[in-house]
């Protein structure tokens, strides 16, 4: 999932300080699962903003709406009937959702209420870790299902560096050395020979280094 967290309230208040009515839009997907921007968090932020405004003697009318997904036009479209009644839109989705709202509702200011952090997995209640950087050319098939791009601080592709100590990365004792994990796993699977295979230099152009990425599937296009 895409993992995000709420921005400091002061920053959000700064965006909407001159507004009287705002549309606060949550998303039912990733940000609901990571407790950052689902229906519940929309309610909490709405309550907090209303109180912060009341305290200053101002009234803030907040319309709460949580879409199934903010990254699909058919759901973003659902706001079209009433978005115009509001001074601004505040999105509690990831950066993708914020931009979809901004591109659909051109005459409204759209502000982000979250900082989008990474693509990751839940490691227990309230803990998330990065697992994928969307490099566009997946290497997991030869690294035992453990990603050296996302999980090695240097994104090394040819084994651990000298900073690997007792299975931990030199950047922090909390961070596992991805290459230690890869080697342990391949050893357990008796697949260490896979690391001896020579492979071509990784093509980083699909990783975003060739500019914003776009994918078209002719079989699905309408």
């Amino acid at each position: 999932m895409i993992v995000a967290e709420r921005k400091p309230i002061d920053e959000i208040i700064g965006f909407v300080q001159d507004c009287k009515k705002i549309l606060l839009v949550g998303c039912n997907e990733c940000v609901t699962v990571c407790y950052a921007g689902g229906k519940k968090e929309v309610g909490i932020l709405s309550s907090a903003l209303k109180m912060a405004f009341s305290k200053e003697g101002k009234n803030l009318d907040v319309k709460e709406a949580t879409l199934e997904r903010q990254c699909d036009p058919e759901y973003v479209q659902q706001l079209s009937e009433y978005y115009d009644q509001y001074d601004a839109i505040v999105s509690m989705a990831c950066g993708v959702g914020v931009q979809e709202l901004a591109m659909r509702y051109l005459n409204k200011q759209v502000f982000p209420a979250l900082n989008t952090n990474f693509m990751g997995a839940s490691q227990g209640q309230g803990i998330w870790e990065e697992r994928c950087q969307g490099c566009g050319e997946c290497v997991l098939g030869r690294t035992g299902g453990i990603c050296p791009i996302a999980r090695c601080a240097k994104s090394l592709l040819n084994g651990p560096c000298g900073g690997s100590m007792n299975g931990k990365c030199e950047i922090s004792k909390e961070v596992d050395c991805a290459w230690q994990l890869i080697i342990d796993r391949l050893t357990g699977l008796k697949q260490m020979h896979m690391l001896e295979e020579i492979f071509p230099v990784k093509d980083w152009s699909p990783a975003g280094h060739g500019g914003p990425r776009r994918m078209v599937r002719e079989d699905l296009k309408s």
């Binding site: 209303k50 109180m51 009341s54 305290k55 003697g57 101002k58 009234n59």
Partner: peptide, 13 residues
């Protein structure tokens, strides 16, 4: 609470 003051001053919630 500062909110109570706002309610008393007629700031709508």
């Amino acid at each position: 609470s500062p909110i109570k003051g706002a309610i008393q001053k007629g700031v709508l919630l």
